[in-house]
Design a binder for these strands. Structure first.
Length: 752
DNA sequence: CGTACTAGTCTTTTT
DNA sequence: GACTAGTACG
């Protein structure tokens, strides 16, 4: 009995077809990871390929690690020398070796989105761009998309032709790129684009890698962008043993430049390519699969596939609509708790998926309230916290003195009396002499404009220099500890009056632990190595599936995972599909959302619950949404409850009438109120509960002359109500706090 | 130079 | 509602 006997015919074919280009169209749950790992095993065991000659590119570090583990289990040796990593890590490895070929030092820094924004801001200032007219965000997105498409600043400028705005962006792009180069830094997109540049312009380097990587595999191929495709094309250019695995129906990263054409056109780029479809699903029950198939069939321009399963139809899909998002969250969490208590389930059998990170808050709250252990994936990244970025900036400053952003970030943290004026003067000097910011600091005594302030700079320079010396003899852990002590950063946190000071200290402590972990586990621990690992982690990477916790995450994060019971929360038009895509005029965006729905549904193995709410707060405003169109695309017989008819929907009609005030100021719901609408009386249902975009004056619940109560200011009298652009401005004369003008939505005044 | 307050934006998703 | 950038003031 061999390990390959457990594969079906198609899977086996894909495993054994090793020579030449191969496209595996793997539907959700069709065992593509099994195919990939067995394929690697096959290459090593049966064909005697040296693991060193195999490269596999995955989407996340987590997937890479899992792949290595599984190959290890199959083969038992050699898995450590297979090159398995993400696109970004792969490129960093190339660049660390050869970036001097394209004019960068090999100890470059990686700029994250925050750093990018700082640079862009600076660039805008220099180019005198009015950021009200041309937003930083717009510029950043434009540059990022350009890089995804391998468009250089010069090409961008040419493409702009007569378009003034585009020309301005092109100038920013040029200036931005120059700044990065001066700082010896790459942004995320550069990692790919510059690697392509490196390989294209250095034939010896390219040939070296082409010879080494005889077999290349790419997972989640549907989410690659043009630059990534070009990278693969170059690397596979020698042997052409390129195997890509993907599912066009699961392409959900168009906003990040993913080019679905890469999968649809694979056969035209590689005419000799073999195509194998994996259509048997081993994950989900029949009804779940039927629902997924029904939804995705509404998309046009996809590769026809028919997923099937022999697992039996399973139970119906559970659908409930609630009055409020609060009720929805309450129900989901209590339902999970009940199932764990009454059935033999573990908390990690459950996942709640939603469209936007903001939706996690309510669920999290309910978990705490109900005592349900949970893990939120994503949201605010650990590494984007202020205190973490500060400490990292110290490390970056020590590692790469040309990283101006890092230096400027910490030059006055903790306070050293070095303000904006001084920094600007130093920067001017640096610009004038074309040196880095730190070099300018070192020459502070030669900057005449500084005056007295210059004295404060010297200790800082000495401090950093001493760290650099220490960095050579200390281990990483000790270095960081020393930084925290010597700079007084820890003391600065400890003395902070802020409420979350303790959390921050914990976070810094956590970072120290990670650093020590890294030092212990890495083969050759270096500061650059640690910083790059930190820069390239994805939220999902840190998720440990064996913990007994409910997972809360976005649909995007859930890709590639599976759970016994999945809850899809917030299935409402305006939330999912998002407001942006509904109101936008690009129909392909709805299709992308639909693919996301498909991904969500197919995460479920045994049970699927779909929930939505009539009313929810978005950006601090109450919104009233209809049931998601995607739910309506599921055949009714697959659901356990009928959907309310769309023709005379009492409650939906209400969505266009004026709302009740009560709906806005809502105290915590009791259990009894949290009943799903299907169990409610018709009377309750007909209650108009909905909302035009702006609240009418009548909806405030009070008028001029009324006595009202405010949480902070106490009682007072309403003097005036003015319609503002978004919300009403209310002037209130408080008995004790004086007269205040405030926005009605924020003030939460209650009539007394 | 540092702080405290105000106004504006945001959120669709992320390596 | 939360966060951030920008401004006025001490």
């Amino acid at each position: 009995m061999s390990i390959y006997d457990t594969l079906n015919d198609k899977q086996k074919e894909a495993v054994e077809y090793t020579e030449g280009p191969l496209l595996i169209l793997a539907g959700a749950g069709s065992g593509k990871t099994r195919v990939l790992t067995h394929r690697v095993a096959w290459l090593i065991d049966e064909l005697g390929v040296n693991p060193w000659n195999i490269m596999a590119i995955t989407f996340t570090n987590k997937a890479a690690g899992e792949m290595r583990d599984r190959v290890d289990q199959l083969v038992g040796y050699g898995s450590e020398s297979i090159w398995v990593s993400t696109f970004h890590s792969t490129c960093v490895r190339f660049l660390r070796r050869h970036s001097d070929r394209i004019g960068y030092d090999t100890n470059f820094t990686i700029y994250d989105t925050d750093d990018q924004k700082t640079v862009i801001k600076d660039v805008c200032k220099r180019l005198q761009i009015d950021t009200k007219q041309l937003k930083e965000r717009t510029i950043m997105n434009a540059i990022s998309s350009a890089k995804d498409e391998l468009i250089t600043p010069e090409q961008f400028y040419l493409n702009a032709a007569g378009d003034y705005q585009q020309k301005r962006i092109a100038q920013c792009y040029m200036e931005y790129q120059a700044t990065l180069k001066k700082s010896n830094a790459f942004d995320f997109d550069d990692l790919i684009m510059k690697t392509v540049e490196l390989l294209k312009n250095n034939e010896d380097v390219l040939e070296g890698y082409q010879r080494r990587f005889r077999y290349i595999m790419v997972d989640e191929y549907q989410d690659t962008n043009t630059a990534q495709f070009e990278l693969i094309r170059l690397l596979a250019g020698g042997y052409r043993n390129l195997c890509v695995v993907g599912d066009d129906d699961q392409s959900i990263y168009k906003f990040r430049g993913a080019n679905i054409r890469n999968i649809l056109d694979f056969e035209s780029v590689y005419p000799e390519a073999k195509v194998i479809k994996l259509e048997q699903n081993y994950r989900s029950r029949g009804r779940i699969l039927d629902a997924a198939n029904a939804v995705i069939s509404h998309n046009i321009g996809r590769k026809e596939k028919a997923l099937w399963t022999d697992k039996g139809e399973g139970e119906k899909i559970h659908f409930i609509q609630f009055d409020t998002a609060y009720d929805e969250a309450d129900y989901i969490i209590k339902d999970i708790r009940q199932k764990v208590q009454e059935q033999e389930k573990r908390y990690d059998d459950f996942a709640v998926l939603y469209r936007t990170n903001a939706q996690s808050r309510l669920l999290e709250e309910r978990c705490i309230f109900a005592g349900v252990p949970y893990n939120v994936v994503g949201g605010t990244n650990f590494y984007s916290r202020k205190e973490i970025k500060d400490v990292l900036a110290y490390l970056k400053t020590i590692d790469n003195g040309r990283d101006d952003i890092a230096v400027k970030r910490i030059i006055n943290v903790p306070k050293r009396g070095i303000g904006a004026t001084t920094i600007n003067k130093v920067q001017d000097y640096a610009d004038l002499h074309e040196i880095s910011f730190f070099q300018a600091l070192e020459e502070a005594d030669r900057i005449p404009t500084l005056g007295k302030a210059g004295v404060k700079l010297e200790p800082f320079v000495t401090l950093i220099r001493s760290f650099r010396t220490k960095a050579k003899e200390y281990g990483l852990g000790r270095l960081m500890q020393d930084i925290l002590d010597t700079t007084g950063y820890l003391a600065y946190l400890e003395e902070s009056e802020e409420e979350d000071a303790e959390d921050r200290i914990e976070n810094v402590d956590e970072l120290l632990n990670k650093m020590i972990d890294y030092e212990d586990s890495a083969e050759e621990p270096t500061l650059s190595g640690f910083l790059e690992e930190v820069a390239l982690v994805a939220d999902i990477d840190s998720v440990d599936g064996s913990e007994e916790k409910v997972l809360l995450m976005t649909l995007h994060s859930a890709k590639g995972l599976e759970f016994d019971h999945v809850y899809l929360a917030g299935m409402e038009d305006g939330v999912f599909p998002s407001y942006m895509t509904i109101t936008g005029d690009d129909p392909s965006e709805i299709e992308e959302e639909r693919r996301l729905a498909y991904v969500g549904i197919t995460r479920a193995m045994e049970h699927l619950s779909i929930t939505c709410a009539r009313q929810r707060m978005i950006h601090g405003q109450t919104q009233y949404n209809m049931i998601s169109r995607f739910v309506r695309e599921i055949p009714e017989e697959l659901l356990d409850h009928k959907l309310p008819s769309k023709k005379h929907p009492e409650w939906e009609e209400a969505a266009f009438k004026k709302p009740l005030v009560k709906a806005v100021v809502r105290p915590k719901t009791t259990q009894a109120e949290a009943k799903p609408f299907l169990l409610r009386s018709a009377q309750t249902m007909s209650k108009p509960a909905a909302a035009p975009t702006k609240e009418g004056a009548g909806t405030l619940g009070y008028g001029v002359g009324d006595r009202v109560k405010h949480m902070k200011f106490g009682e007072g009298t309403v003097m005036q109500i003015d319609p503002g652009t978004r919300d009403y401005q209310v002037t209130v004369a408080f008995d004790t706090a004086g007269t205040k003008i405030m926005y009605a939505g924020f003030a939460k005044l209650q009539k007394i």
